[in-house]
């Protein structure tokens, strides 16, 4: 009986999580008249018109492409710089290593609002304002420390004897790193990429400040419906649903690693 009760609690919690998302989806396939007209749990006349609006209007769908581009660049930069650094932290003692590690983490603690204006001026002055690379670099502020932190946890779990054996067998460091070490921490890299994707995809404040037209993220485009001719609830809801889709796909791919990955290799 105990077993049964536990699961009722879990189901209620999941219902609480899904209800608002369902409501958004429900609204996205209604017409605006029905949204404002009556409270219906299921749409009377399901319509895909709201999605059609978004997928045919470049002003809308370029937002998704821009977001994808800077998130992609950010994940690649974060992984490339964090891999060797995490290896250094997990294998060697060096002057100032503890301080450096804590300093890296403090960047994760800095409120983005603090960096808003300086970032804007910095990227404007070097001509990077309104480019994908600017947003990707800005997001490195919190993603690189996080990537180093997670990867260090995973790498510390790999016995050092493996490194030594490889050197005895005559592997050079780059060759060892690329052909032996990286395959060993594959799941760690996957989890790190997931986290970088997550924090870059959901961030809006910096992304919006550093872009105006060319690299405008979808999240910023969404605020547009508020100003244009009252509120277009249906299209707003459809846009919201479409921003959930990439995240849901990513979760689906890493679902078996999530439990271990969230512990950042530390249990």
């Amino acid at each position: 009986m105990q077993f049964q009760k536990r699961h009722i609690g879990l189901l209620l919690y999941i219902l609480f999580l899904l209800l608002p998302i369902y409501w958004l989806f429900n609204m996205s396939i209604k017409t605006n008249t029905e949204i404002l007209g009556a409270m219906t749990l299921f749409p009377d006349n399901p319509t895909l018109a709201n999605y059609a609006t978004i997928l045919t209007d470049p002003a809308w769908y370029t937002g998704y492409i821009n977001s994808m581009i800077y998130v992609g660049i950010n994940v690649v930069i974060s992984l490339v710089v964090a891999l060797p650094a995490a290896y250094a932290f997990s294998r060697f003692n060096f002057t100032g290593d503890k301080h450096l590690f804590f300093w890296l983490l403090t960047n994760r603690m800095a409120p983005p609002a603090v960096f808003l204006l300086p970032f804007f001026q910095l990227y404007s002055s070097v001509g990077l304002f309104d480019t994908h690379i600017a947003v990707a670099l800005a997001h490195c502020l919190f993603n690189v420390p996080l990537a180093v932190w997670i990867l260090e946890g995973f790498m510390s779990g790999i016995p050092k004897e493996i490194d030594e054996t490889a050197y005895v067998d005559g592997y050079s460091f780059p060759r060892f790193f690329a052909t032996i070490f990286i395959p060993l921490i594959r799941s760690g890299i996957g989890v790190t990429a997931f986290f970088c994707f997550m924090f870059s995809w959901v961030e809006l404040l910096l992304a919006r400040t550093l872009t105006s037209v060319e690299a405008k993220p979808i999240a910023a485009t969404m605020t547009r419906t508020v100003s244009a001719s009252g509120l277009d609830w249906g299209v707003l809801a459809a846009a919201g649903v479409l921003t959930i889709v990439p995240g849901a796909l990513v979760i689906w791919f890493v679902r078996n690693y999530i439990a271990k990955g969230f512990a950042m290799g530390r249990v």
Binding site: L17, G247, I251, A259
Partner: peptide, 23 residues
Amino acid sequence: SMVLLALPLLIPWNVVGTIWQIF
């Protein structure tokens, strides 16, 4: 349950605001 639980974490923050604004 992993997939369902992780879902809210991957929603852009302003969309979270929008969802609750509507809800």
